[in-house]
Design a protein around this nucleic acid. Structure first.
Length: 822
DNA sequence: AGCACGCCGACT
DNA sequence: GTCGGCGTGCTC
């Protein structure tokens, strides 16, 4: 009999144990252990039990026989992860430089982690023998406490009852010396939800016969029986209705008069919602794209980019593609930027495919997520709609991944692993041989570039549905307004347009990428600016509570009436946020009904939908909002979109600033004139000649792209070179600077020694981040701009440079292909 | 990370 | 001689 060994990854996120550990598969489990399963193994000197992922199985292992241990137990029969997912996890680990366990953990929904419960029992024989429990020591108190509770206690509860390091150590010692026995139990953090049902046991035929067995004084029991029947009712309903306790139920059970059964329930976030989305006739352009799609997917693993102007019917194309896949017996994943911002997409997919659709996103509870995941895993779903992490949905025969609004930054994770769903999707397509479709009205420069080098097929939709014309976009030079003595945030033109729209009873959207009232507060006399004491940003004035607020850490303080610096009364508010826009619009158009949508008005659950629905039902004339109103929303009666200041995103110190501005302007303009009513867009700016605005005005992606790609080539920014952003954060700025400089020097030294000296110029010297402090933590970064991403990630992965490690007061974030370098 | 081991000083 | 505090190093 040959032995088999399992390669496992211990579920403990630490760099020191980020490696494979080999365990012998015990004879009892031979043939049972599979890749992707979670198991329990003894680990470390004390053989403490931990859970681990089996990532490989082999017949031989190089570890000495006396060192090797055996797997204790399997947690779940069915492997949690598939072989393909394990492959993908390895790629994520290497590409994004994270721990192997982090790459595995990101593939399963939160709440599915394994929890270890340690139940404590008193070993009374040993306790009396050694006379513990008599004196007033901690040991005796613990014994007394457990005795008083009169039930097995969780070790954790005992630690919490007797807090402190010292106590913990002594309790551990009691366990080690067998005064306390510990029974370990592993279980999943989330369980299937069960609903209990109650019915008559079937012992008798008529209710009277049942009642004969119950004393006349047991009113509650009699009442219960009278409400029951020979088919099941929900126990919870009966309990609530009759206001009964468990004891009456228990006595009835004892007499075998009732029976209780339980049924697994599926926590469906979309239950009793009925969406309808009948199939639409395709336009010529749409048909053409579907035909190209059908042709292309005959070949292995094709990648396509649909560049379709806003309102050109990309969703209908996605639905058709998914349908084609279903006919071929293949499943699809449809990624959307953020479910809560694109409820219409989910409705349309469910409306078309109904029960076959699963929805996965971060607003689901752990239980809901787990149920959706299980349904997908069981093969009950053929379509998964979801945000970024839905790319890891465990579909068995994946044929197509669609990424809608592929340029959106929310596809990039800001936690480890800092993956981008598009890059993961590309890798996944390679692994499972499926197809990838990206869609956007404003494709990212990188994606569009890959259509030029034929990596992606470009599919274009140049016209809106029903040939609704693109809205007219006017750029208003706010410098002229100033010259003409108009100091208002509204230009004459925008004011006139709003007024006219109000008269015609059409709706308007006003967009501004800043929340709050004023963006900074300053003294006109001495120039003092109110800044956050914990962050390197100015405080925003909020009108509702008349306080200053930090948008990064939430710090807040009352607005000063006199300057804290020079004691003058010349404190003034500068800059404009959505609150100020709201106030001004209210003043200038008192008859208008106004809604405001930003982080401050959508904090409550459901308020998001509420605002959108109110506006859709024409309960308001004007919607004022930030980014969150710019995407995916379809309001047919909106004919005017006003951008209060387009320059906000333009002046960010980031190489993607122009791209962002073009995207944002185009997307927000796309909210106008989506029906027979034609639309008008007014963009206010201090820089009307900027190419991103000019091309947005002319709905001219191609020329924007040409101009932008030339700049990128000139500056050697992505896609021409890849970026790595390494951010050091910590409370002690001095040691932070010292460490990042050491890091830099070691990197350059390493390159020199490895004969790669010419790559030293790829590394920029460490500098403070644009926002140099957040929440009292200083931030410095080091940027690598290179053609040799693999070499650098290899160096960084090997833990090089050594000596600079994360600690309590130093955090190192390595971001491969960052979305922003601010 | 979490734990045992081992060295050292303090104290019964 | 024993206890426990903390630095070191290993975990299949």
């Amino acid at each position: 009999m040959i032995s088999q060994y399992a390669q496992v990854i211990i579920n403990q996120p630490s760099i020191h144990i980020d490696q494979y550990f080999d365990y012998k598969i015990p004879t009892a489990l031979l043939g049972e252990i599979q890749e992707g399963q979670r198991v329990i193994v003894p680990f470390g000197r004390g053989d403490r039990t931990v859970d681990a992922f089996v990532v490989g199985i082999k017949d031989h292992c190089d570890i000495e026989d006396n060192k090797i241990k055996e797997i204790i137990q399997i947690i779940e029969e069915a492997p949690t992860l598939t072989a393909n997912q394990l492959k993908l996890a390895k790629w994520i680990r290497d590409y994004y430089i994270c721990l192997h366990i982090e790459a595995l953990q990101v593939m399963i929904p939160g709440g599915m982690n394994i929890v270890k419960k340690e139940r404590v029992f008193l070993n009374l024989a040993r306790i009396t023998e050694k006379c513990i429990g008599k004196n007033n020591t901690l040991e005796s108190k613990v014994v007394q406490y457990i005795q008083e509770q009169n039930r097995p206690m969780d070790l954790d509860t005992i630690y919490r009852t007797f807090p402190g390091q010292e106590n913990k150590r002594r309790i551990k010692k009691m366990v080690r010396e067998n005064y306390l026995d510990v029974q370990e139990k592993f279980y999943m953090g989330i369980r299937e939800k069960e609903e209990k049902y109650i019915m008559l046991s079937g012992k008798y035929k008529s209710q009277e016969d049942y009642l004969k067995e119950i004393k006349n004084t047991a009113h509650k029991q009699r009442e219960i029986i009278m409400h029951l029947d020979h088919f099941p009712y929900k126990l919870r309903d009966i309990k609530n209705k009759l206001n009964i306790s468990n004891s009456s139920i228990e006595s009835l059970l004892k007499k075998e008069l009732i029976s209780i059964t339980s049924k697994m329930v599926f926590r469906n976030p979309y239950h009793n919602r009925n969406f309808q989305n009948p199939r639409k006739t395709l336009t010529g352009e749409q048909k053409n794209i579907i035909e190209q799609f059908e042709y292309l997917i005959k070949k292995p693993s094709q990648k396509m980019l649909i560049h379709g102007v806003t309102g050109s019917g990309k969703t209908e194309i996605y639905l058709n593609m998914i349908e084609k896949m279903l006919k071929m017996g293949k499943q699809s994943i449809l990624l959307v930027p953020e479910i809560s911002l694109t409820p219409q997409m989910v409705e349309r997919v469910i409306g078309r495919f109904g029960e076959q659709v699963s929805v996965l996103h971060s607003h689901l509870s752990h239980g809901e997520k787990y149920d959706q995941w299980k349904r997908i895993k069981a093969g009950k779903t053929n379509i998964v709609v979801g945000a970024r992490s839905a790319i890891f949905a465990p579909l068995k025969s994946l044929g197509l991944i669609i990424i809608d609004e592929e340029h959106e930054t929310s596809y990039k994770s800001s936690n480890r692993p800092r993956y981008h769903a598009k890059e993961v999707a590309e890798k996944l397509c390679e692994i499972v041989d499926c197809h990838l479709v990206l869609g956007s009205a404003t494709p990212s420069i990188e994606s569009y570039h890959s259509t030029e080098n034929r990596e992606y097929h470009l599919l274009s939709l140049k016209n809106r549905i029903d040939h609704i014309p693109m809205p007219d976009i006017t750029l208003v030079d706010m410098r002229n307004e100033l010259k003409e003595g108009n100091y208002s945030i509204l230009s004459k033109e925008l004011r006139r347009a709003i007024e006219q729209n109000l008269q015609e009873k059409h709706q308007s959207i006003l967009f501004l990428n800043r929340r709050g009232y004023s963006t900074f507060v300053s003294c006109r006399k001495c120039g003092y600016v109110e800044k956050c004491p914990k962050c390197d940003v100015s405080l925003t004035y909020h009108q509702n509570n008349h306080r200053l607020l930090c948008h990064y850490c939430g710090y807040t303080k009352p607005t000063p009436k006199i300057c804290p610096c020079c004691k003058s009364r010349k404190i003034r508010f500068f800059g404009t946020g959505t609150q100020k826009v709201e106030t001004i619009i209210k003043k200038e158009f008192p008859q208008a009904r106004i809604l405001r949508m930003d982080v401050d008005t959508t904090r409550k659950k459901g308020s998001h939908d509420q605002i959108i629905n109110a506006f859709k039902n024409q309960e308001a004339d004007i919607l004022i909002g930030t980014q969150m109103i710019s995407k995916g929303l379809d309001f047919p009666r909106v004919t005017l979109v006003g951008v209060i200041i387009a320059d906000t995103s333009l002046n960010l110190p980031d190489f993607r600033a122009a791209e962002r501005t073009f995207q944002l302007t185009t997307q927000v303009a796309g909210r106008a004139g989506r029906s027979v009513l034609s639309g008008q867009v007014i963009v206010q700016t201090y820089e009307p000649s900027h190419y991103s605005l000019i091309h947005a005005q002319q709905h001219d992606y191609d020329n924007f792209y040409k101009e932008e790609i030339n700049l990128r080539r000139e500056m050697q920014y992505p896609p021409f070179k890849k970026l790595i952003n390494i951010v050091f954060t910590g409370e002690d700025e001095e040691s932070l600077i010292r460490k990042i400089n050491t890091f830099y020097l070691q990197l350059t030294d390493y390159l020199r020694e490895a004969g790669k000296g010419h790559l030293i110029n790829d590394i920029f010297k460490p500098v403070p981040c644009s926002i140099s402090k957040i929440k009292n933590k200083y931030r410095w970064h080091l940027i690598i701009k290179t053609n040799d991403l693999l070499l650098f990630s290899h160096i960084l992965k090997k833990g090089y440079p050594k000596g600079v490690e994360e600690s309590n007061n130093l955090n190192i974030a390595i971001d491969i292909n960052p979305m922003s370098i601010i």
